[in-house]
């Protein structure tokens, strides 16, 4: 168990943080919804009802999709774009998909390379893009889930105010859908841009997200 935690501290730690904050979101979201119910002279709903409602899941999904979009775009953009001096970037001149030799695929694979990296056929092409493929799929699926659950929550509000419910196609053109979407995207893009440019001049000793403290500001992609 100790060896397991030592080897997997990051994934275990963030997994537990995720679960704890999801529970926190459920409890506070439930309180917020019932406060609103009281204001509108409605009946309070149970916590169980709330966590299985579109209201809760629309909030969860709108945050998921923006996070996965952030990482998806970052993985893609860093193939081709460079930020001189940033640890988050490849070195100037390394932009692009790089050679098979550099990427250790096909004939250049090593004995311990993953099997699909060694094959040199379509499977190698798929495996070469598997991280971006999976992250993109999760982004699309969570954005779709946001739109489907967001529509139900939106329609509940519409009905509560004697207005007509909308179809899914109508919902994805509403200000509600785009407000939920863009308010999350803007913060993600700012955070990524900040991380890229702040890491040129600022340091965190011991973190692989930072250059070594004594590395020159102009040094790009130096492992911490």
């Amino acid at each position: 168990m100790r060896a397991f935690l030592k080897d997997n501290g990051l994934s275990v730690g963030f997994g537990l943080l995720f679960l704890a904050t999801l529970v926190g979101q459920a409890i506070s979201g439930h309180g917020s919804v019932n406060h609103d119910q009281l204001l509108h002279h409605g009946d309070p709903i149970s916590l169980g009802h709330y966590v299985s409602s579109a209201l809760f899941w629309a909030d969860v999904m709108e945050n998921w999709q923006s996070e996965y979009l952030q990482f998806t775009l970052y993985i893609f953009a860093t193939i081709y774009l460079i930020q001189k001096g940033s640890n988050e970037s490849k070195k100037p001149g390394d932009a692009g998909r790089e050679s098979d030799e550099e990427q250790l695929v096909g004939a250049h694979a090593q004995a311990d390379s993953p099997r699909w990296a060694q094959l040199g056929d379509l499977r190698t092409t798929i495996y070469s893009n598997s991280l971006l493929l999976v992250m993109t799929s999760i982004w699309i699926a969570s954005w779709l889930a946001q739109s489907i659950t967001g529509r139900i929550a939106y329609n509940a509000d519409q009905l509560g105010h004697q207005s007509a419910p909308v179809s899914w196609l109508s919902y994805i053109t509403t200000a509600d859908f785009w407000n939920r979407t863009l308010q999350n995207w803007q913060s993600e893009f700012l955070a990524v841009g900040s991380m890229v440019i702040l890491s040129v001049y600022l340091r965190q000793r011991g973190s692989p997200e930072s250059k070594p403290v004594g590395a020159a500001h102009g040094a790009t992609a130096t492992e911490g």
Binding site: F4, D7, N8, S11, G15, S52, S142, T149, I152
Partner: peptide, 30 residues
């Protein structure tokens, strides 16, 4: 690498489960 593959599978399964449940909730119209 002890347990690392297990963590990989737990994450993927958890994400897939969450997405499926959310889409289900939206489709059922709860």
């Amino acid at each position: 690498m002890r347990g690392t593959r297990t963590m990989f599978i737990i994450y993927l399964a958890g994400i897939a489960g969450g997405l499926t449940y959310a889409i289900g909730v939206g489709l059922v119209g709860h």
